[in-house]
């Protein structure tokens, strides 16, 4: 949820979440944000929040409303905008920024978008795509935010029953895939047969050995190390003279694998 931070002379007075669709600001006590100062009009301004967008409107105040130093009548609030009413300052913190500070939405879990909200968001995104890359990026993030907000609004519960995600963080901040732990590279060397001495690095997640239809085993590269698993054939491969079971068999440095009549040595490269 977006919020306002009220301050005077650099001193933070309070934080106000923009929970309502209409948040009024003024000197009189019925306002949602009351600022008891003679420079502030009775009904000074109002902030209208629709989904993730907030608009500030001056209600014909005597001394006017400034945003980032410029007098405004109506203004589409952006993250970090400073609203000034007399000596008081209100800093606007947008939904995305507010959410990033709070709980980060879980973006792994599948959620559904309402097609209607989708279309509106997509159209808006498309319309703004014409206005250059910057605009496109902005549109995309709004589209996602709106989508997420509407998904939340329409009661799409999320899987862990956490509060529905408030907003989508900027698309640039993609989650980095879990880093693979550093793992020594393995290789195999043929020690019998016509190609004895030939070496092969095991850089791929899996490498098959053997003759299809006769005997095939697969060497898999995993974070824990290398494993050999029997794939097909009547006989299972031997490791150091012992036949392996049906389950994946972990490989150690200098293990000798025997299958389809060929011996290969497995070793780890420095």
């Amino acid at each position: 949820m977006a919020k306002l931070i009220l301050s005077m002379d650099g001193l933070v007075l309070k934080e106000i979440p923009l929970a309502k669709e209409r948040t009024s600001i003024g000197r009189k006590p019925h306002n949602d944000i009351q600022i008891d100062n003679l420079a502030v009009s009775g009904e000074h301004a109002v902030i209208v929040t629709i989904l993730s967008d907030s608009f500030l409107e001056d209600l014909g105040s005597t001394n006017g409303t400034l945003v980032n130093g410029n007098p405004i009548k109506k203004h589409f609030l952006q993250n970090n905008d400073i609203i000034e009413l007399g000596k008081y300052k209100l800093k606007f913190v947008g939904e995305a920024a507010a959410a990033a500070g709070a709980e980060k939405a879980d973006f792994e879990k599948t959620m559904v978008l309402r097609p209607s909200a989708m279309k509106a968001a997509a159209e808006q995104a498309r319309a703004m795509a014409g206005g250059g890359a910057q605009a496109a990026v902005a549109a995309r993030s709004t589209a996602v935010q709106q989508a997420a907000a509407s998904a939340a609004a329409t009661g799409i519960a999320d899987k862990e029953a956490k509060p529905a995600p408030a907003a989508a963080p900027a698309p640039a901040a993609a989650p980095a895939p879990a880093p693979r732990p550093a793992q020594p590279l393995g290789a195999i060397q043929l020690i019998s047969g016509a190609n004895a001495g030939k070496e092969m690095e095991l850089a791929k997640p899996l490498t098959t050995l053997g003759k299809p239809g006769v005997q095939v085993a697969v060497l898999t590269r995993r974070p824990q190390g290398y494993f050999i698993t029997h794939v097909e054939g009547a006989n299972r491969p031997n490791v150091n003279g012992q036949q392996i079971g049906a389950a994946p068999h972990p490989l150690k440095d200098h293990d000798v694998i025997e299958l389809a009549g060929v011996k290969v040595e497995f070793f780890l490269k420095g």
Binding site: F107, T110, L113, P115, V144, A147, I156, P171
Partner: peptide, 15 residues
């Protein structure tokens, strides 16, 4: 591949 909102589907059963 690096997008943030991979999880938002536009059609689903039961919605």
């Amino acid at each position: 591949k690096n997008a943030q909102h991979k999880n938002l589907v536009t059609k689903a059963l039961g919605i």
